[in-house]
């Protein structure tokens, strides 16, 4: 996000709260995400009228109704398409997309990968609850294999998607992950996403307490979460555990492995996180519980030209080097006059 910060008045969380009743189920993880986003927006220094939230269909996609900015609740899976058209024609706006695992990875998978590869300067928040909530409980593209749901009473035969892996594969320039319940962690990730120039992809683990309750309990469990999460910090060794006594290193097969700091092993043997290294980012994306701690934070962040930069530049260059009026355009080509 590089939108000019021109807010004269310092905004607060309250400025981003709408008068609409929030209609998510009580206890839904979406409340926490909404609250974190409303907390972060005043930090951006962007006037409220320059912020736009665009969503598709699903529980997550109700998001724009509850944020007092410009908003557009569109159709299933297509939020990135509207966001692209808006951002290309209005690079001055700060555009956010709220989507979910069904909206963004199933019906809208195509648009998601293309907005990432084009690197439009937008923020994409993918609420991953690993279930279809709004349609009342079918399995989603991130549901685990064998999952019993309303539409898979004998277990889902699908292999699930890995959202971080997809974003990296699509050429995303900013890829991160956070969790709904981690109100200390999410704001930092959201802020980084907003400040990144280019498409930012943030997967947010989000609990659906009605249809998939406890999907992330293993990772978020208060007692053990420090042993089960790997907090990523750029330039720092990959260390985790209640007592900071475990880490990640590359073995001789060039594969990640968990080490405990004993028998002479220490933090010095751990891999140093480098947000600009795609190999590390990919390796992290493949680290799945319970074999590995679940990585949280920024996996990958690099700079590339954005689509709208190039598009705008082409227009400006054309205006300078080959100026044209509509009158001239109409009269171009082989023209003849009849008297």
């Amino acid at each position: 996000m590089t939108t000019e910060a021109t807010a004269a008045v310092k905004l607060t969380r309250k400025d981003f709260v709408t008068d609409q009743d929030v209609r998510w189920c009580p206890g839904c993880g979406d409340y926490a995400i909404l609250s974190q986003v409303q907390r972060v927006l005043p930090e951006l220094g962007v006037p409220r009228e320059k912020i736009v939230f665009i969503s598709g269909i699903g529980c997550s996609s109700r998001f724009p109704y509850y944020i007092n900015t410009y908003g557009f609740h569109t159709i299933h899976g297509r939020a990135p398409t509207l966001a692209s058209g808006l951002k290309i024609s209005r690079p001055d706006l700060c555009v956010w997309i709220a989507t979910g695992d069904g909206d963004g990875l199933s019906i809208g998978g195509n648009h998601l990968i293309h907005i990432l590869r084009r690197n439009l300067n937008v923020q994409i928040l993918l609420f991953n609850n690993r279930i279809y909530g709004l349609t009342k409980g079918q399995y989603s593209p991130t549901s685990e294999e064998g999952k019993i749901t309303k539409s898979t009473p004998y277990g889902s035969p699908d292999h699930p998607f890995n959202p971080i892996g997809i974003a990296l594969g699509a050429g995303a320039t900013f890829v991160a992950r956070s969790i709904d319940v981690e109100n200390q962690h999410m704001p930092g990730v959201l802020l980084r996403a907003a400040q990144h120039k280019g498409a930012s992809f943030v997967e947010v683990f989000q609990n659906c307490n009605i249809f998939n309750d406890g999907a992330f309990d293993y990772t978020t469990d208060k007692e053990n979460k420090l042993d089960r999460q790997l907090r990523l910090e750029n330039g720092k060794p990959m260390v985790f555990g209640k007592n900071n006594d475990k880490g990640i290193r590359m073995n001789s097969q060039m594969q990640a492995e968990v080490i405990e700091f004993k028998d002479g092993l220490s933090e010095k043997d751990c891999l140093i996180h480098d947000e600009t290294n795609p190999a590390i980012a990919y390796m992290l994306s493949q680290m799945v519980a319970p074999k590995f701690p679940t990585p949280m934070g920024v996996f990958f962040a690099i700079q590339k030209t954005t689509y709208e930069e190039v598009a705008t530049e082409q227009i400006n260059t054309a205006k300078k080097t080959r100026p044209l009026t509509i009158e001239q355009l109409l009269k171009s080509g082989d023209v003849w006059t009849v008297k």
Binding site: T74, R78, T81, L82, S84, G85, L86, I88, R90
Partner: peptide
């Protein structure tokens, strides 16, 4: 979709 998005923005 992109055309609708652009129209929302005033194009």
């Amino acid at each position: 979709g992109s055309a609708i998005g652009a129209a929302f923005g005033g194009a």
